[in-house]
Structures are given as structure tokens and as C-alpha cells.
């Protein structure tokens, strides 16, 4: 189920209708460096492919995993995040947090089965107009090669991206990634700086956990499922699923829908009739 395998079928081919498929790319650019760099690129008349659509934010640090994963969920083939070079951030430390957030986004894309190459973080200064055009050219070519995102054609991928989005919004991941930069540079409440490898390990494990739980909720929202069925669809051991289910039941996020023989079938609890 790799994307490359998929690309072999769809890349550069005509898709539904007579229009030749073109990648759709969204760029989130910070106001002070990258947006200005894109402006200079225009002023200098450096040409690049027309696929990218740019959205201005004040700082790249504003680009939360939710923004990116939701836009991927809506069918974007590629997303570019542009910020100031490290140590040149208009808001001093904003882009250091961006880096950490992008790490999380990449982790989540990985588990959701989306090629990480579809997300690109670039530092483009206000004076790097030419660099901006190069980045967009390269990125567009790369997306051409990767082919269309499977979000719109594969329900499982769609569910996984939605789960990744939900996971990114959990308290645990947001708090961990939000504090990551300060934990590594300033230290924790006791002034101890954390070992980067150890912290990465903690975040990796948390990402996997939260993603799996979010995916269980996503799948059991679509139709009630047993532990065994979930294990099969998600391709992970049933004891892991069971552990997640126990926790989700404690949090009143999932409940037994009905038994099938002796096997309980679970359904996600939705609030306010949300489907």
C-alpha cells in the first residue's frame, strides 16, 4: 500500500474526465520572510509552475498539525510550509516550534500511510526570491511523480488521515510537542534538559498510541466493530486493540453496541448527533 506503488498507476495519467491530472499544492507562508520571499520572486519574475496556492499566516508557528492534516484530508496533494530561517524568526523562536510541529506532522503522515514527501518545510528569507521559485518547481515536480493523493479514492486512507488529524488534537500530543522545544533548550520545571533521543522516543510512542485510538474511534464511528475486526483492518495485534478499547471505554469515547455471540461489537460515542 505504498504511495509509490499507487503513483505507478496514476502518475501523469488522465483521471476522471478529460483534464490531465495536476497536483494541487497549498502553501502556508509566514508574513515576514517566506511570503516576502515569494513577493520578491514575483518582482524578480522568477517563473514557477501554477499548481501552488498560497495562504498567508503571520508566523509558520501558527500552522498547527490540524491545519495541515485537515487540508490533506480535503485532498491536497502537497503542502508547503515556509518560514524564516532559524534564528531569523520575526517572533524570535516561532520557527523552532514549527520544526517540532512538522516533525509530529511527518510522524502522523507516516502512520496514516501518506508519503512524508507530500509535506515540505522550507526556510525562505525575504531576500530569497529565486530560492522560492526553485523550491516550488522542485516540490511540484515531486508531487507530479508521486501522483494524486489517495485520500479522495481510498476510504481507509481517508479514515487514517482523519484519525491522524484527531490524534494531533489530543492533549497528550499537543502538550508534548508544544513543550518539546523548551524541554530541550530551557529544561523542565526542575531545570533539567531532556535527552533529545529519549524525548523523541516518548513522542513516537505517544503518536502511535494516539493515532491507533483515534483510528479505532474513526472506524467504529463508520460501523460498529469487534476487537478482532479492528485488529485485522488496522493490522495490529488484538491485545493492543483491547488495551485501547479499555481506555476509550473509561473515557466514555466508545461503548458496546451489541454482542455478536460472545464477542462484543463496539461503536464510537458521538456527541450531539454528530456523525
Amino acid at each position: 500500500m505504498t504511495e509509490k506503488h499507487h503513483a505507478a498507476h496514476h502518475g501523469k495519467k488522465k483521471v476522471a474526465g478529460d483534464k490531465e491530472w495536476e497536483p494541487k499544492i497549498v502553501g502556508f507562508l509566514c508574513n515576514w520572510c517566506s511570503y516576502a520571499g515569494a513577493d520578491l520572486c514575483g518582482v524578480s519574475r522568477f517563473q514557477y509552475p501554477t499548481n501552488i496556492r498560497l495562504v498567508r499566516v503571520m508566523c509558520s508557528t501558527r500552522v498547527s498539525p490540524h491545519l495541515v492534516l485537515d487540508v490533506f484530508g480535503a485532498g491536497a496533494d502537497g503542502i508547503l510550509i515556509g518560514g524564516c530561517h532559524l534564528n531569523d524568526c520575526h517572533y524570535m523562536t516561532g520557527n523552532f516550534h514549527t520544526e517540532k510541529r512538522v516533525n509530529l506532522m511527518e510522524r502522523l503522515l507516516r502512520v496514516a500511510g501518506i508519503d512524508e514527501a507530500r509535506l515540505r518545510l522550507e526556510w525562505v528569507s525575504a531576500s530569497e526570491g529565486e530560492k522560492f521559485s526553485k523550491v516550488v518547481k522542485e516540490f511540484t515536480e515531486e508531487m507530479q511523480k508521486l501522483g494524486p493523493s489517495k485520500v479522495c479514492t481510498d476510504d481507509m486512507v481517508k479514515a487514517k488521515v482523519a484519525a491522524a488529524d484527531d490524534a494531533s488534537e489530543t492533549f497528550r500530543l499537543k502538550a508534548l510537542v508544544g513543550k518539546e522545544f523548551n524541554l530541550l533548550t530551557k529544561g523542565n520545571a526542575y531545570g533539567d534538559k531532556l535527552d533529545p533521543e529519549k524525548l523523541t522516543g516518548i513522542i513516537d510512542a505517544a503518536t502511535e498510541d494516539e493515532f491507533e485510538r483515534a483510528l479505532i474511534l474513526e472506524l467504529a464511528r463508520i460501523r460498529p466493530m469487534s476487537v478482532k475486526q479492528l485488529g485485522k483492518v488496522m493490522d495490529i495485534p488484538t491485545d493492543r486493540i483491547l488495551r485501547h478499547i479499555v481506555l476509550l471505554r473509561q473515557n466514555s469515547e466508545i461503548a458496546m453496541d451489541h454482542p455478536e455471540g460472545f464477542t462484543p461489537v463496539y461503536k464510537t460515542i458521538t456527541i450531539g448527533g454528530e456523525q
Binding site: V57, M58, C59, T61, R62, V63, S64, H66, L67, H90, Y91, T93, G94, H97, R101, E169, T170, F171, R172, K174, A175, V177, G178
Partner: peptide, 22 residues
């Protein structure tokens, strides 16, 4: 200064950035 760092960070989703909302 409206950079949005807190908004993207808030684990409870309690912070909104005016004029640059989600």
C-alpha cells in the same frame, strides 16, 4: 504580536487567533 504560537500549541484548543482563526 499575533504570531499564533500559543494557538497552535494549546492542548485544549482553548486559544483562537483573531483574524487568523482555524
Amino acid at each position: 504580536k499575533g504570531c499564533g504560537c500559543c494557538g497552535a500549541t494549546c492542548p485544549e484548543g482553548a486559544i483562537t487567533m483573531t483574524h487568523y482563526t482555524d
